[in-house]
């Protein structure tokens, strides 16, 4: 069943893709093929492949339980939050927080997770910024 839904979504995506390709404006410079043809070919291939998956599905994958899905969603949310925090809080603080959260959720005890966060963030800062001279996001502390 999972594969059938996947194929269905694929077909919808393909339809959207082909529609988006029809809206490509033509420029006054042109060649015999133009900017639309190759996207149409890709859209067609995409639709065919989706259809084949829909018609001949594999055995369904092992879906994680709702709690595991929530875990992943929370992990993704933290990564997104990390990205938004980066310019304002700076690299060291944001990375320490992000690492601590991920370590904790991957099974580290809270205290060791915090230590891992500080160590990872400090380690990356020293190696990549101080030694290798890479630009990292600057925060209020200047680091």
């Amino acid at each position: 069943m999972s594969d059938r839904i996947f194929g269905g979504i694929g077909l919808a995506l393909a339809a959207f893709y082909v529609w988006a390709a029809t809206t490509i404006e033509l420029s006054f410079i042109s060649d015999p093929v133009g900017p639309k043809t190759f996207p149409f070919i890709i859209g067609g291939l995409f639709a065919l492949a989706s259809l084949a998956i829909l018609l001949r599905p594999d055995a369904p994958p092992e879906w994680p339980s709702m709690t595991r899905l929530a875990e992943i969603a929370a992990g993704v949310a933290v990564m997104v939050a990390y990205v938004y925090l980066l310019p304002s809080a700076g690299f060291v603080i944001a990375t320490a927080l992000g690492t601590a959260y991920l370590s904790w959720r991957l099974g580290a005890a809270p205290v060791s997770a915090v230590v891992a966060g500080l160590a990872t963030s400090g380690g990356i800062f020293v190696v990549f910024h101080l030694v290798l001279g890479l630009t990292l996001a600057k925060g209020p502390l200047g680091i």
């Binding site: 990564m79 690299f91 690492t99 991920l102 991957l106 990872t120 990356i124 990549f128 890479l134 990292l136």
Partner: peptide, 16 residues
């Protein structure tokens, strides 16, 4: 639990 967060952070650092 310590390695994977490091992988994530190094990925962010590289792209940034």
């Amino acid at each position: 639990k310590y390695l994977m967060p490091l992988v994530a952070m190094v990925s962010f650092v590289g792209i940034y």
